[in-house]
Amino acid sequence: MATTDHTDYGDDVVAVPLRHPSRWIFGGIATVLLLSFIWAVYSAKSIQHEIVAKFLFDPRILQGMLVTIFVTVLCMFIATILATLLAIMKLSENPLQRWLATGFIEFFRGTPLLLQIVFWGYLGIIFPQLVLGVPYTDIVWLSGDTSDLIPALLAGVIALSLNEAAYSAEIVRAGILAVDSGQVEAAKSLGMSGGQTMRRIVLPQAMRVIIPPMGNEFIGMLKNTSLLQVIAVAELYTAASTISSANLAQIELLVVSGFWYLAMTTVLGFPQRALERKFGRGFATVGGRAAPRAFKVGRR
């Protein structure tokens, strides 16, 4: 039971915050477990360190990593644009647009990504010839063998982009819905068009809500590029498994590719934080506090 100390210390007393001894205990336990895991992996007889070290900077691995980065960035770029269009369509007053967007999203979310990658990769078996033109006329812009027109890399990019667009569309839609309807009314009352309102008022505010889950999607995309191994796109995982199928050092090359995936996803955190700060301007957020910035004109 707390007792009240009636001794007169004057007004010169000091307040201290609540102490948390349990944090030190849990921290200690976690450190011990982590260290013993690292030791277990390090001392495992099945992993030969010199092989890991030898292939860590192998040109084929580094080349694969470049492909992984290229595919990830390109797919996320395409997917984000598509997702924004889909989200706006799904929020449209036009029922046809709503149904189209909903159908697209349902279809690409409802089938496994691996299946979609294989589908695009082997499109040439289903449709050996591709013709781009006006149906029932002689107008043809492009025609040829499907496998020539859509090489594996392009098939992979199409598959990953369309699938990602379906997922991201819901994230963008949630972001748009999070913007107060009074913002749209204010923009309208100033005579702004629908497009201007979306570009200048709604989307910049939606970004604040969209970025954290999109960071997740970015990391997911980076790892999902490894699925392109099934259609022989020469990305990081394909490069590692090609090497290991020759030298039989499977575990070592898994460690190599795992190391680089982890390195890349870690680095991705930095631009995300920068973006969160940028779009958090004017909002009092936990991560980046609203700071007054010097006025800039001609931002467009």
């Binding site: 204010a186 100033l190 702004m192 201007q196 301007r281 004017g282």
Partner: peptide
């Protein structure tokens, strides 16, 4: 026609001055 709302509806991601000049520039 200018309109002023009960809950202000200022654009929170823009400074006061940017709020004021957004429509004159864009519209």
């Amino acid at each position: 026609i200018g309109m002023v709302f009960q809950r202000f509806n200022l654009f929170p991601h823009m400074t006061a001055l940017q709020n004021v000049i957004e429509a004159p520039i864009g519209v």
